[in-house]
Computed example of a mutant assay.
Amino acid sequence: MHLHLVDGERLPLGGVAAVVDLGGDPAILADRAAGSLPHVTYAGAFLTTLGGYPAGREWAPPAIVRQITDASPQIGRPGGAATAVDEQRLAGASVIKIVLHHERPLPEDALATIVDTAHAAGLPVVAHVEGEGMTRRALDAGVDALAHTPFSERLDAALIARAAAAQVWISTLDIHRDDDHGAGIARENLRAFRATGGRVVYGTDLGNGDLPLGVNPRELRALLAAGCDAAALVAALTDPWPGTGSLPGVRTFLRGRPPRRSDGAVDPDALADWLSSASVLPTEDLLPTLDDEGDNADSEDRDDGHP
């Protein structure tokens, strides 16, 4: 998501306990990450080539873009690839965001410097890929994650297998809802990626158009249509990428139990709406419940709430 484009403080009311900002002002994000919910991790600025996407876009102020003009691995050079990575690291970034856009992608030498510098600092690299051949370029360069399921080209089975073994994909399927062609390509790429063992993380690119300020049921339904079952949906929603642990002191709360069909199986048609009804609460706001005999009851075994 992009916090500078939405009211992030409203997200916990919509069931979002944590966000990953993949393109914003690193100084502002460092301050925001020290605040209250949602928990914020971030990439800092987009690293792009001179004049490359998203430089000049109305929604992308200059502070969120670094235009790379020097591929040298020496930190401190103005416009340098290594300098830009180090700036984001010093601002507290947990991941580095690059742009591989067909109109003006990062040159090979700058891309290599960014990936090498980020990996040397222990930071994964996530890429916006758009256009023919850009997913292959990201894989060849050692990029760890894609900010969007590839939507501009259908990937062959060999490339999908490589991606599944090496990358995390962030879903962002719902941003294509007005583009049947792009939506179909993204859905089929994601279906194949999952079938090959790929790791899928729920993400919506919040800030990109009219999207719900909370868990997006359309994104969940799109994931189901791409072959995710209920367990895979929950795994994608709760994946800690780019970190490895859970959030202390908070719980996502869902009222009632997962909706089921008459045969007892989870109802996939109703599941997305149920999951999108979640809210986030600090642990201290959750009170123990009492069963009929007065003993403390496990709230997961009750019908009035499902944390």
Rank of each mutant, 00 (worst) to 15 (best):
A141C: 03
I160D: 10
L100S: 04
D25G: 01
G243P: 12
G24N: 08
T204C: 03
P268D: 10
L237T: 05
S246K: 12
T196L: 06
D263Y: 07
I68W: 13
L139V: 15
G243V: 10
E103K: 14
G227F: 05
A272L: 03
A145N: 11
D292P: 11
V125S: 03
T117I: 00
A236Q: 12
L211E: 08
V85C: 00
S94K: 14
P26W: 13
D31S: 06
D116G: 01
D116F: 03
L155N: 13
D140Y: 03
A18K: 08
D116L: 02
I64P: 00
G80I: 06
A60R: 08
V200S: 05
A297E: 14
A33R: 15
D21E: 06
H119P: 05
A138S: 05
L37F: 11
A27T: 11
I28Q: 13
L159T: 15
G76M: 07
A163R: 06
T135S: 13
H119G: 04
T41G: 10
V280A: 00
S36D: 15
I96T: 04
L213Y: 08
P248M: 05
P217Q: 09
S279Q: 09
V6A: 02
P212C: 00
G76Q: 14
V6M: 07
M1W: 06
D303E: 15
L3I: 04
V250L: 06
L247F: 12
A71F: 11
T135F: 06
V266F: 06
A235W: 06
G256K: 09
L223D: 09
R218K: 11
A82V: 04
V234C: 00
R218V: 07
R57I: 02
T244H: 14
P307I: 05
H306S: 01
E219G: 00
D303S: 08
F151C: 01
V20Q: 09
A120G: 10
L237G: 02
L123R: 12
R260L: 01
A138Y: 13
D178E: 15
S94C: 04
G23V: 02
E284Y: 05
A120M: 07
C228V: 04
G142W: 12
A195Y: 09
G35M: 06
L146Q: 10
